[in-house]
Design a protein around this nucleic acid. Structure first.
Lengths: 190, 190
DNA sequence: ATTATCTATAGATCTATAGATAATGC
DNA sequence: ATTATCTATAGATCTATAGATAATGC
């Protein structure tokens, strides 16, 4: 009990990181504060010294979930050679990503719940969608900037939708068909 | 109290219909049994004479939500002239659909929660995804059947993803850009 | 007699708060 | 002295069940 401020900052980050994972796995409405704190090795009581409300944590956790994906794409882009459009598609539309939503793209699993969330979370999401569109557009082998942006928006939508559908169906063959077909078509038409 | 069997069947349908709408509006985890029964003009106690469990209602309500969309597309297809691929896209990707999830496509709003639901609901979803792919493929102006099916899968994914993203962002201009861009690209590339 | 619905409630769980405790930080 | 965490709990809500009531259906 009663630890240092440095410790508190670390604890705060741990709670957010765990929430970010659990929310993607169970949904924003699917995990309680007690469970999250327990996973962080803490108890419920301490929660409200870290966050004013549950919505506060949701906003931070969603932001953190976006951050993970952003870091990965940024790193891939900055690599030499920078990651290709084709590679991005393959990194998204695969079975490992499908089977591990907790560490994957937040949009594919949280978009509908974010749509029902508070203004802060949705504003944060707008910003992230804008960033991701620009990121994908920068990788698009398109003629002009306008076309690249349009292609990026279609690509982004298809990635998110295909992943959501591939996870929702129980038929494994159908699930794979969705992932593979969308990946192939996106790569061939860009 | 104590009504006829015909009445019970009607009541059952009313509960499912209300659940189908509310689940799309608030998520599968976002509405309680008491609230649903109250909206149907009933009380909690009667619920379990209609359904063995909450999951039973979820399965029926999701099925019902799929049915609505299916009926609409079937009708459009059977019309003379049958609805075109372009028309289908426009009927999906518009602001009215975006702003009324309760009467819209269940995938765009429930896919992530369905992925966490029981086998029955997911099996039912597989069947519906299969149907919808075939439905869209039948409208695709593509060379051969294989190409039509691939295009249908990409189209379906892009529709669902674009709608989910358009609803998640708070920036109205960005939301519209997503809907319009995906609609235009799908129509031009098919 | 059966049953569709009602009222009432058990038992679990969820967000948030109050007050105690044990450490840090001045 | 302040504060990060703990235990305990209030008050709301959620699924599910028990038992009463008033209608149908034989």
């Amino acid at each position: 009990m009663g630890h240092s401020r440095a410790q508190k900052a670390k604890t705060h980050k741990r709670i957010v990181s765990i929430a970010s994972k659990k929310f993607r796995e169970e949904g924003l409405a699917g995990v309680g504060i007690a469970e999250l704190m327990k996973e962080a090795g803490l108890t419920v009581g301490g929660f409200y010294k870290h966050f004013d409300s549950r919505d506060d944590l949701v906003a931070e956790a969603v932001s953190s979930a976006f951050g993970g994906w952003k870091r990965r794409v940024d790193a891939a882009k900055a690599g030499s050679p920078p990651v290709s459009y084709e590679k991005l598609i393959d990194e998204y539309l695969n079975e490992a990503h499908r089977d591990n939503p907790g560490t994957g793209c937040a949009f594919s699993v949280l978009a509908p719940e974010i749509a029902r969330s508070d203004k802060r979370t949705r504003a944060l999401t707008s910003e992230q969608v804008r960033n991701d569109i620009e990121l994908i557009a920068a990788l698009c082998p398109a003629k002009d900037k306008r076309t690249a942006r349009s292609t990026a928006i279609l690509t982004f939508s298809a990635l998110v939708g295909a992943m959501a559908l591939a996870r929702a169906v129980s038929d494994e063959a159908l699930s794979r068909e969705i992932l593979n077909t969308v990946a192939e078509l996106l790569k061939n038409s860009a």
